[in-house]
C-alpha cells in the first residue's frame, strides 16, 4: 500500500516536469520523495521578492511625478518673479518722472513768487539740464541664470505630461507582470522580472537625479532674482523718501502763494 501512493506522486511530478522542464531532469526529480512543500514555499518567496521591487518602482514613479509637479510650480514662480521685476522697474521710472515734474514745478514756483525769480531761474537753469527721457519701454531682463533655468525646465514640459501616462504604463506593467510570474515557475523568468524591475528603478532614479538638478538651478536662479529685487526695492525706497520730502516742500510753497 505504501508503494502505490509513491507511484502516484511521481506521476504528478512527471506531469509538472514535462510542463516546465526538459526530459533529462525527470530522473533527478523521481528520486526525492516530497518536493511539493519546497516548491510552494519557493513560489511564495518568489512572489514576496517580486512585491518589494514593484513597490519600489511605484515609489520612484510617484517621486518622479512629484518632482515634475514641483518643477512646474518653480517655473510658474520664476515667471511671476520676472513679471514683478518688470512692475518694480516701471514703478522706478514713474518715480523718476515724478521727480522731474517736481523740479519743473519748483522752477515755476520760483518764477511765480517774484519778478526777479525769472533771473534766478535763468542763472540756475543752465547747470540743471534734465536728462532726455527714454520713452522706449524696456523689457525686464532677469538674471541669465534664472532665464537659463526657465528655458531648460520648459523643455521638460513633455516629460511632465508623459509622467501621467508613465503611471498608467506602470499599472499596466504590474498587471502584465503578475500573471507572468505566476505562470512561469522557473528561475530565469524570476531573474528577468527582477532585472526588469531593477532596470526600471535605475532609469527612474537617473531621471530623478537630472530633474532634481534642474530644480536646484531653478531655486538658485530664483535666489539671485530675489536678491536683485531686494536691491531694486531699497533704491526705490530711497527715491520715494526723497520724493516725499520734495512733495511736502512744494506743497508748503504752494500754500504760501
Amino acid at each position: 500500500m505504501s508503494g502505490y501512493p509513491k507511484s502516484y506522486n511521481p506521476f504528478d511530478d512527471d506531469v509538472e516536469d514535462e510542463d516546465t522542464r526538459p526530459a533529462p531532469w525527470k530522473d533527478a526529480r523521481d528520486l526525492p520523495d516530497g518536493p511539493d512543500p519546497p516548491i510552494d514555499r519557493q513560489q511564495y518567496l518568489r512572489q514576496e521578492v517580486l512585491r518589494g521591487p514593484s513597490a519600489t518602482a511605484a515609489s520612484t514613479s510617484r517621486s518622479l511625478f512629484l518632482m515634475y509637479e514641483s518643477e512646474k510650480i518653480g517655473v510658474a514662480s520664476s515667471e511671476e518673479l520676472v513679471r514683478q521685476r518688470g512692475v518694480l522697474e516701471h514703478t522706478e521710472k514713474m518715480v523718476d518722472k515724478m521727480d522731474q515734474d517736481l523740479k519743473m514745478s519748483q522752477k515755476h514756483i520760483n518764477s511765480i513768487k517774484s519778478v526777479f525769480g525769472g533771473f534766478i531761474n535763468y542763472f540756475k537753469s543752465k547747470p540743471v539740464e534734465p536728462p532726455p527721457e527714454q520713452n522706449g519701454s524696456i523689457v525686464p531682463q532677469p538674471s541669465s541664470r534664472l532665464k537659463e533655468a526657465i528655458n531648460t525646465s520648459k523643455d521638460q514640459e513633455s516629460k511632465y505630461q508623459a509622467s501621467h501616462p508613465n503611471l498608467r504604463r506602470l499599472h499596466d506593467a504590474e498587471l502584465d507582470s503578475v500573471p507572468a510570474s505566476t505562470v512561469n515557475t522557473e528561475v530565469y523568468p524570476k531573474n528577468s522580472s527582477l532585472r526588469a524591475y531593477h532596470q526600471k528603478i535605475d532609469s527612474n532614479l537617473d531621471e530623478l537625479s537630472v530633474g532634481l538638478g534642474r530644480l536646484k538651478d531653478i531655486a538658485l536662479g530664483m535666489q539671485t532674482e530675489i536678491e536683485e529685487q531686494d536691491d531694486i526695492l531699497d533704491r526705490l525706497t530711497t527715491k520715494v523718501d526723497k520724493l516725499d520730502v520734495n512733495i511736502k516742500s512744494t506743497e508748503k510753497k504752494v500754500r504760501q502763494l
Partner: peptide, 14 residues
Amino acid sequence: ESTIVELGSIFQQL
C-alpha cells in the same frame, strides 16, 4: 519620496 514631497510643499509655499 517623502523628501521630494517636502520639496514640493516648499515650492508651493514659495
